[in-house]
Computed example of a mutant assay.
Amino acid sequence: MDDATDRTLRALGLHEAPREHPLLYPGAWPAESGLLVGDRFLPLQRLVYEDRTPVFAIGSNGCPGQLRHKMTEFGIGSPLPMVKARVTGVDAGVSAHVSRMGYVSASPVGAPDTVRELFVLWLDAEQLAVIDASEGAPVPGGNFDRAWLPSPDIRIDLADGTRLPGAYAYVNRHGVLHDGTGTPRTHPGERELLTELLVGLPRLRELFGVVPEEFCARARGDRRLCERGTRLFIEEKLVTASGLERYVAASARAQQSGSPGTGASLSPPLT
């Protein structure tokens, strides 16, 4: 991006939020690292921010439109660095729960032989509190735990050659969906995922309709229906572990011991 580039999210095709358009999940990701400032995505001056917390963006948290939606809800407009990284050991699986936002979200899975590009969000305390709350991390009934994924288990290489010592990820408390062999499946995009699930699961069609549009419309905001869909995944024996659960336990022990950088974030109300 040069100085003549229109850096608004709309001009860059990054403005739509899956929270408002569930079938777009996980939303449009930037082509490069950048600084999200309100409605603009600006060039970065550096890739590491020691005074902030690094968090993997696995699903829609890699979409600037989604991040803007979450931050605006709490009146937070501080700049948010999004740094593209080459990551070894983590992939985007499928959450074993139906979200009240109207979609089945992505969830990190352990994948030792997988190398892919992901964004690392460098979050200040307020931003971290918002993302924590959006994932349900601060409450017992939430969908995700925030866990530290350390190097060398997970390798995180930045464009300037920096290798990070680790980053946080949101590990699903429900587990993830498998591919029929017990191996976690990867998230192909919402429309493709819902089409496949609805075709293969008659009981899911009874609850959510026969096409993805119906699924999203019925699921959106209906807590009881989403809970029934989540239970159905278990009853159909589609759920397996993500492979990252041990890091949740390790992060909990570190937090109890007061280790630096592992304390709980602020906890705004769940949305």
Rank of each mutant, 00 (worst) to 15 (best):
L121N: 15
G166K: 04
I154R: 05
H174S: 12
P138W: 01
P184A: 13
I156L: 11
L121D: 07
E117R: 04
P152L: 05
A125K: 11
R146P: 03
A137P: 01
P165G: 02
L164R: 05
G110E: 01
G166P: 11
A159C: 08
T183Y: 14
L149W: 12
Y168G: 03
A159T: 01
T114V: 14
T162I: 10
G141I: 00
G141L: 08
D160M: 14
G110D: 02
D179A: 11
R155F: 13
L164Q: 03
S151P: 02
V139S: 04
L128K: 10
R116W: 03
A129Q: 00
I154V: 15
A167K: 07
G180A: 15
P112N: 00
A147H: 09
Q127T: 15
D157S: 14
Y170N: 08
A125H: 10
V109T: 02
F119Y: 10
V176W: 00
D160H: 04
D113I: 09
A111K: 01
D179P: 01
H178L: 06
D145T: 00
A133Y: 09
A137E: 15
P152H: 12
V139C: 03
G175C: 05
G110S: 08
I154H: 02
V130P: 04
I154L: 07
R173G: 11
E126D: 14
L164K: 00
Q127A: 14
V171K: 13
P140G: 00
A133V: 05
T183R: 14
L158T: 13
P140A: 15
D153C: 01
D113W: 07
V176L: 09
N172G: 15
Y168I: 03
G182D: 13
F119W: 06
T183W: 05
V120W: 02
D113G: 07
V120K: 07
D153V: 11
R146T: 00
A159H: 13
P165K: 14
T162A: 15
D160V: 11
T181V: 14
E117N: 01
N143W: 14
D179C: 06
T183K: 08
R155S: 06
I154W: 13
R173L: 05
D145Q: 03
V109A: 08
P165V: 04
A159L: 12
Q127Y: 09
H174V: 01
E117H: 11
A111R: 00
Y170K: 03
A133W: 10
D160L: 03
D153N: 00
P152D: 01
G136Q: 08
V139G: 02
P112Q: 02
A159Y: 09
D157A: 10
R163V: 13
T181I: 06
L177I: 14
H178E: 09
E135D: 02
P184N: 08
Y168T: 08
P184R: 02
I156F: 07
Q127P: 10
V176D: 13
P112R: 09
L118D: 04
A147E: 04
T162W: 00
S151D: 06
G136H: 07
V171Q: 15
D179S: 12
N143F: 02
S151L: 07
G141A: 07
A125T: 12
T181P: 13
G182W: 12
A129F: 04
A125D: 14
P150Q: 09
N143M: 13
V109P: 03
S151M: 05
T183D: 10
V109G: 00
E126Q: 12
